[in-house]
Design a protein around this nucleic acid. Structure first.
Lengths: 254, 254
DNA sequence: CGTACCTTTGACGGCTGTCAAAGGAAGTGG
DNA sequence: CCACTTCCTTTGACAGCCGTCAAAGGTACG
């Protein structure tokens, strides 16, 4: 039951009763296996599902008129994908797999039902969405005020913390299916400059990245370089919101 | 009744029945007048309210260890403020007034009740939150891929469209209580460079900004410079989500 | 084994930051 | 209402980070 990465994700925000667990398991029924580079949804299309990423990595991007690509999300196993777009009449981005993996769709109308019938789950989904937004916001801050070296350090720490959150025994060396190209598109730099920065960081024994792996050699230095703020990965929820949630738990069992 | 800017804002996303209107009016009861530069909330504090901005402009920012400031949100009349932070145990930003104005707080626990008792309002609030997020996302894309001139053009258009959304008869000249300093902090540039860009835009008859006003002289040129995408300001909602909402409208009247 | 893609490296240029100083506008107190 | 202070804007000189372009070497994949 609780080997579900989605439950591990959402259970941080509310108590998951048997009824909620049943709903959440629906989030992971009927997984679909996607190949690397397969598209989950396409920019401009009507959102018809939200998705949970069971295994593998994915990302979202926009293609501009001039052909340039801009990357927005990097999704890791356990992430809910598409919750930002689901109220919109058009997907703002295209979503594609970075590595082969399993994805579980949940129809949008089921989300509406969940909002109506399980308000504490609705609040949890909103809370999870707010956490995702906090990651984007933090990356915006990173790009607003840091130079290239600091941006890279900050981004590596973002990924490291997000992985560690659902995989507590993560080592300092781990799989990172992102090419220099992807990192450059996330951070608003060129792949050429990413190459230079990574080379310098390896020479300084801070980290070593190969095509599919990365090893953090000096975690403290990464923190120093990036002014990384770990507080945002707190799973606490605002205590003002918890009173009614317990009241509803009671209701649900009636 | 419907001179409420919050109702004008949220009514885009759902049908507002009399019961919903009653709740929404609570969003605007007991307005508090704030002076320029007054703080609405402070970074690190426990969020205890969400707020609707009835009049005046506000913004959120972070102060870094080195004293640098990073600006995240620019809030206009009618915006809901603090919905992103309300599930978190700490405010990620400080919120301050850019100009004198009226703000109406709504206690966080009331939001929880609304999530439980008015699920279609909950979905509307989530939809409104997603629209705010879309603005931030679009600004991230702007900063990722545009140079200084394009960033400024894009940002002016962002504000112009957001103002026009709640004030349909907005002229090409309007109040803009943002100093060059604020614009530079929003866009990750220096105030010196903003000064240079604005000077050039005025020389090219694109726009003219004074301390408190701005006049758009060549709207089409702004679009051309910025690759601005107007779609995101669509107020349509995903039709997959509307079925249950009408069902609930029915329920609420029982 | 060949092709396509990714990474590395160097040279060069430009956009934007930094620093500094002067002029202007707004706010404050007498 | 004026004087004073503080903050904002403008302008110039200069420097540096990072983008662009190009070519070579490395790696994955069919």
């Amino acid at each position: 039951m609780d080997d579900s990465c989605v439950i591990r994700n959402l259970s941080h925000f509310t108590t998951i009763g048997p009824e909620e667990a049943r709903i959440l398991h629906e989030f992971e029924s009927e997984p679909i296996t996607f190949k690397k580079n397969a598209k989950i949804w396409r920019e401009g299309h009507l959102p018809s599902n939200i998705y949970t990423l069971h295994s593998g990595w994915a990302y979202t991007y926009q293609v501009m008129n001039n052909g340039k690509i801009r990357v927005l999300d990097i999704f890791l196993p356990g992430d809910i994908m598409g919750i930002r777009d689901v109220t919109l009449p058009h997907h703002a981005t295209t979503c594609a797999m970075l590595s082969p993996g399993d994805v579980c769709p949940l129809p949008a109308w089921r989300l509406t039902e969940i909002f109506h019938e399980h308000p504490n789950l609705a609040m949890s989904i909103h809370a999870s969405s707010a956490r995702q937004q906090a990651v984007i916001t933090d990356r915006l801050f990173n790009i607003l005020s840091n130079d290239a070296k600091s941006r890279v350090a900050h981004f590596i720490l973002e990924i490291y913390h997000r992985l560690k959150r659902v995989n507590t025994d993560l080592k300092d060396g781990f799989t990172l299916p992102l090419l220099q190209k992807h990192i450059s598109l996330v951070l608003g730099l060129t792949n050429v400059h990413i190459s230079r920065v990574l080379k310098e960081m390896e020479e300084n024994n801070i980290l070593k990245k190969t095509r599919n792996e990365i090893e953090i050699l000096d975690l403290q230095m990464l923190y120093n370089m990036s002014n990384f703020n770990t507080k945002k990965f707190s799973d606490e929820i605002n205590p003002h919101l918890t009173h009614y949630i317990s009241k509803t738990d009671h209701r649900d069992t009636l």
